[in-house]
């Protein structure tokens, strides 16, 4: 299952804060996809993901738009 978080139009620190909220609430075995058009999030979200035990993959889906896929690390489960 994939949960989607559309944070387009929002600027710092909101996309990061909302992504953290969503990661905390994410049920086991689900993947979180964050959509953003705010480039500083490409630094802040992976850092917070690491702290919460998530792996990050970033895909450029537009100019400028990114999909950040956050997957819970297996070892922490």
């Amino acid at each position: 299952m994939t949960m989607k978080l559309d944070a387009r139009g929002e600027i710092c620190p909101y996309p990061m804060m909302k992504a953290v909220e969503a990661m905390r609430a994410l049920p086991d075995g689900e993947v979180l996809e964050v959509y953003t058009d705010h480039s500083p999030c490409l630094e802040t979200i992976p850092t917070q993901a690491e702290r919460l035990g998530f792996d990050t993959a970033i895909e450029e889906t537009g100019s400028p738009e990114w999909r950040i896929t956050l997957t819970r690390k297996e070892s922490t489960q």
Binding site: L42, P46, D55, T56, A57, I58, E59, E60, T61, G62, S63, T69, T71, K73, E74, S75
Partner: peptide, 20 residues
């Protein structure tokens, strides 16, 4: 387990790069 890290991949669809 693969560590995805921060690898950034390009979107597959080719776009006209009008901004540059």
């Amino acid at each position: 387990m693969t560590r995805a890290g921060r690898i950034i991949t390009k979107a597959p669809a080719a776009r006209l790069a009008w901004q540059p």
